[in-house]
Design a protein around this nucleic acid. Structure first.
Ligand SMILES: [Mn+2]
Ligand SMILES: [Mn+2]
Ligand SMILES: [Zn+2]
Ligand SMILES: [Zn+2]
Lengths: 139, 139
DNA sequence: ATTCATATTTGTAATGGTTACAAAATTAAA
DNA sequence: TTTAATTTTGTAACCATTACAAATATGAAT
């Protein structure tokens, strides 16, 4: 049922004016689902947009997140990462290679106690460990 | 079955030499279960230990975490928090008042897919929303 | 087309949490 | 007491992020 839309339409639907920079940043995020940092987005897009500013990337990604177009991933302790996938899923960080993997879990299986009358807006499940590749490499 | 121990014994059991500063920092963390920041620990203990250095607090809390005496909580995006409670529990951050609440969930209810042959070392469940007090206040 | 107001982008400076580092102080062994 | 090892301290550096104002782009009104 997902209507295929282009970047401009997505931005307009979120109430964001689709400027050139915003379209390019949005397209990068939804096409590169590797949880890139601001610096990664900036470096890659700078080749295409030589005048691009880091501040624009920071502000634009923050704007996208506020408008719920994308999500931020905070598993890295020092640097923010962004995620173009909006469906509920968890993140696994390999402490050896640093890569961040997606995984699925059933949100409805989670029962919380101690949060009566709280409003729950966003749930994040984060796991740290060793990925398959690194586990085998260091046999 | 938990044997009641004093701070020195806990530190020794973890392989940490119980210096004066380490004992005080450890006691503060296990007695103040409000997920304090480094700055909070430093400010409070400075009254008791006027010569205390921020660096000591940073290094000591990092050491405690590595030796699995305490846990770090990363739900605050800019500042690290520390937690003297080691049992598995989740963290809720109120986006209005900023307070961080503990909640319980059943770890065994969580079934992951996509992590076959991965080594899982640490799981964190974090929720953002509005706490009861703030929800009522802003009726 | 020109003027004007608004929105967006840009570059630089400042902020703030954290880390690096070496000197000072403490502890323990010889 | 010497000596070496450990711990603590204070300062400087680091670096991701934010603040801010100038520059640029957009769009409507005249
Ligand atoms: Mn993801
Ligand atoms: Mn806790
Ligand atoms: Zn790995
Ligand atoms: Zn609250």
């Amino acid at each position: 049922m997902n209507k295929i839309q282009n970047a401009s339409e997505d931005l307009l639907n979120a109430g964001i004016k689709p400027s050139y920079q915003r379209i390019k940043i949005y397209e990068f995020i939804i096409k590169n689902l590797t949880h890139p940092t601001v610096e990664t987005v900036y470096k890659k897009l700078s080749k295409e947009i030589p005048t691009l500013s880091r501040t624009t990337v920071y502000n634009t990604l923050k704007l996208f997140e506020k408008k719920e177009l994308i999500r931020s991933v905070n598993i890295e302790e020092n640097e923010m990462r962004y995620d173009g996938q909006k469906h509920i899923h968890g993140h696994f960080k390999c402490t050896v290679c640093g890569e961040i993997f997606d995984f699925n879990y059933n949100y409805n299986d989670l029962e919380f106690s101690g949060l009566d009358d709280f409003v729950l807006n966003q749930t994040d499940v984060m796991i740290k460990g060793i990925c398959k590749k690194c586990r085998i490499k260091n046999s």
